Structures are given as structure tokens and as C-alpha cells.
Simulated scan of single mutants.
Amino acid sequence: MSWVMLGIAGLMELVFVLFLEKSHKQGKKMWLFVSVGAMIVSIYILGRVTEFIPLGVAYAVWTGLGSLLSVGYGILFLGESKRPLRLFFVLLIVIGVIGIKTFG
């Protein structure tokens, strides 16, 4: 269950980034409040998860998942670059998180 909660925390990090970008583009404070709320929820869940998963592993998975989802969203929906070298470095993040989980 703690891994599911960690996944939810990572998703909330994506929500944070999406609404932060929406707030910036539209200039509406409502989206900024949604963004900050999502980050608060994400950090709260991360804190709770560290009772069951070591901090270093939980943090690496949390940031890695948030980064992966943000980059993926940018590529799929915002027309951001999907150059091979960029994708290679995203893959390195995934490999690093798997390595920390496996050997941590």
C-alpha cells in the first residue's frame, strides 16, 4: 500500500507542475492555489510513506516519477522536444531510481 501511496504522491507532483504552468499562462491565481495544494498533498503523502519506505528510496522514486511524468506530459501534450538524447537522459533517471530501489 505504501508504494501505491508513493505513486499517488508522484502523480500529485505532476498535478502541481501542470497547474503551475496553467497559472503562469493564464495569470489566474486560482490555478496557483490548486498547484500549491497539490504540492502540499504530495509532500504530506511522501512524509507518511517514509514511515514504511526508507527516505532516500522514497524521495528518489517520488522525484523520478514526478520528472518522468512531467517530461512525458510535455512531450505528449505540449509539443516539447523528443530528441533521442533528451529521452536517453530521462531513461537514466528511470534506471537510477530502479537502481536505488534495487540496491538501496
Score class of each variant (00 low, 15 high):
L46P: 00
I43Q: 10
L6E: 03
E80F: 00
L6Y: 03
I75L: 09
M30L: 13
V4R: 04
R86N: 12
T63P: 02
L76P: 08
G104K: 04
K22D: 00
F103C: 03
A60V: 10
I75M: 13
S70I: 13
A60W: 07
R83M: 10
G79M: 05
V71R: 06
Y73I: 08
Q26A: 11
L11A: 14
L55E: 11
H24K: 15
Q26S: 15
V71W: 06
S35M: 04
K22Y: 11
L20T: 13
G7S: 07
T102I: 10
L46W: 03
G64N: 04
K25S: 12
S70H: 02
P54W: 03
F77R: 11
V90E: 02
L11N: 04
R83A: 14
I100D: 01
I8G: 00
L14N: 01
R48N: 12
G96Y: 01
W62Q: 03
F103N: 05
R86V: 11
L92C: 15
V17L: 11
F88G: 14
K28R: 12
V57Y: 03
V41C: 12
G96H: 04
M12S: 11
E13G: 14
Y73A: 09
L91A: 15
A58E: 00
F89Y: 14
L55A: 13
L76D: 10
G66H: 01
Y44L: 13
K101T: 11
Y59K: 02
F16M: 09
E51V: 10
